[in-house]
């Protein structure tokens, strides 16, 4: 079985390298080890979304039973998205679970993940806090996602207001990422975020 996995990954790797998406810099794939069990993926934030301009790194682990079982994929770049854990990067996507088909490839996975960034499914959340914000305050969600894209994925949209609030918390001795999470979770309400951090 493992032989099929390696054979497949070799072929798929070539397929991605030659694909037109790579030519357009929308997706990227790199090998991490020589026996084709771990790869590094990269997807560009889709245009006209809060993720635009960001580049998101993915950890791809190929199980021995591949392609009869799906690859294990996780976001290594921190991201603010209802279907992706803001803590671990775990992804909730049907084709990575029971809707996987042996004939799918890493290219289809990368493209599906890119599509997930354009169209979130807040009713099937991985991160409940993000999903609630998405449903209750879409503008606040977009602002937060854009800010995270800027900070963690190299996106172009700097938000001085967010940075200022984070700086206030850092001055109080809070670690930067922890401060960002607290503010993001409380719709950038400095008072409530502070309360939560010190309670």
């Amino acid at each position: 079985m493992a032989n099929i996995a390696a054979q497949r990954i070799k072929r798929e790797f070539k397929e991605v390298i030659k694909s037109e998406e790579v030519a357009k810099c929308a997706i990227k794939l790199e090998l991490v080890d020589d026996n084709y069990t771990e790869l590094r993926g990269e997807i560009a934030g889709p245009p006209d979304t809060a993720y635009e301009g960001g580049n998101f790194l993915l950890e791809i682990k190929v199980p021995e039973t591949y392609p009869f079982n799906p690859p294990k994929v996780r976001f290594m770049t921190r991201i603010w998205h209802p279907n992706i854990s803001s803590v671990t990067g775990a992804i909730c996507l049907d084709i990575l679970k029971d809707q996987w088909a042996a004939a799918m490839t890493l290219r289809t996975v990368l493209l599906s993940l890119q599509a997930l960034l354009s169209a979130a499914e807040p009713d099937d959340p991985q991160d409940a806090v993000v999903a609630r914000q998405y449903k209750e305050n879409l503008e606040m969600f977009k602002l937060t996602a854009r800010h995270w894209t800027n900070v963690y994925a190299g996106g172009p949209n700097v938000n001085p207001e967010c940075d200022e609030k984070i700086k206030r918390l850092i001055d109080m001795g809070i670690e930067e990422h922890q401060a960002r999470v607290a503010l993001s979770s409380y719709n950038w309400d400095l008072e409530r975020a502070t309360e939560q951090l010190f309670s």
Binding site: I4, R8, R11, P67, F68, A102, A103
Partner: peptide, 8 residues
């Protein structure tokens, strides 16, 4: 034919 799963 080439099998799309095992590409043999």
């Amino acid at each position: 034919l080439s099998c799309p799963v095992c590409i043999t």
